[in-house]
Computed example of a mutant assay.
Amino acid sequence: MLTIKSIRETNPVILNVANMVTPQHVADAINFYGGSPIMFTDEREAAGLTNISSGVVFNMGSTNEATLRNVIASGKVANKRGIPVVIDPVAIGATELRQDNFARAAEAVAFDVIRGNAGEIAYLANVNWQANGIDAGNGDGDVVAIAKKAAHRYHCWVVLSGVKDIVTDGETTYCVDNGHPYFQTNVGSGDMLDGILATAIATEHGLKALVRATATFSIAGELAGEKYPNQPASFFVELYNQLATITDEVIDTRMKIHQV
């Protein structure tokens, strides 16, 4: 079973093609959770940095040709070496450019994990959903069915973030009931979870590791919210404190998951 102790003992190096808005948030989350983050923006060092990494994260929130080249160059090396790949299709329903870039990335790189909100995963599952930029938006679909459909389509694990998080391989599916509303208030929370997930499966490659990592991040949010119930900015800082100090005993006690 994945443990905080094993993550911190392993201290996996996690390489990131980051969204221009949140690289510091992501680096701090990975570091406090127990990994070692690296960001890169130059395709010329993609192979070298991927080769020393234990996991990679591709955030498609700052879409441009250079970012796509970085994703493909690093992803090909990661696939060849068996290094797990996490991708976040940020606001993919918003523009054709984001859709085309994700499609080009998916054609060149096999993903281990796709992490997104309901609107993003619904787009990938070809389900109608009224997404609104980076926000999940609204839809009538069954989020469990949507996550499973996306997992089958891309042959990977899917983590659908929301009030309740869905983690699935298309066959076995878990619901994580932990969390806090301030995750939606603070931009970058999902990007931080991307890094947490990569750190987890770089340590132990499996669906249950993703479930526990998702729950751990959500529990850290619950604890931060208990300390700052009416201060969303203070919540965000406290979230880092909780990630840095959370124990497996606390996770085991507070974790609310069930198979669906």
Results as ranks from 00 to 15, higher is better:
E171L: 15
D191S: 14
A136L: 03
G188K: 05
Y174Q: 13
Y174E: 11
N178Q: 03
G170A: 10
K164C: 10
F183N: 02
M192I: 05
L193Q: 11
Y182L: 07
V158S: 02
S189R: 01
D142Q: 13
N186E: 04
D191M: 05
V127P: 02
A136V: 10
G137R: 11
T185K: 10
A145F: 04
G137Q: 05
Y123W: 14
D135F: 03
D142L: 11
A151Y: 05
G195I: 08
H180S: 03
G137V: 01
D135A: 12
G139V: 06
E171I: 06
P181R: 06
G141T: 03
G141A: 03
L160F: 00
T168L: 05
D140C: 12
M192G: 04
Y123V: 01
D194P: 02
V187R: 11
V163S: 13
T185L: 12
I146R: 13
Y123F: 13
G141M: 04
A125P: 05
R153T: 14
N178T: 01
A136R: 07
D191P: 03
I146P: 08
V167R: 15
V144E: 12
D177H: 11
G188R: 15
A151D: 15
H155V: 09
Y123S: 06
G162M: 12
N126A: 04
G162W: 14
G190M: 08
F183A: 02
T172P: 00
R153K: 05
H155W: 08
D140Q: 15
K164Y: 04
V159T: 11
E171V: 08
D165E: 06
T185M: 07
H180N: 10
A150S: 07
N132V: 13
V143N: 12
D140T: 06
K149Q: 05
G179L: 00
G190K: 09
L124C: 08
V167H: 08
V187S: 08
K148D: 07
N186H: 09
H180L: 03
D135Y: 06
N138R: 08
A147V: 11
A131W: 09
N126Y: 10
A125L: 10
A147W: 04
G195M: 10
C156A: 07
A122M: 02
G188A: 05
D169N: 14
K164W: 02
N132I: 06
M192F: 09
I166F: 05
G170Q: 13
R153M: 13
R153F: 06
K148T: 07
N126P: 01
A145W: 03
V158P: 00
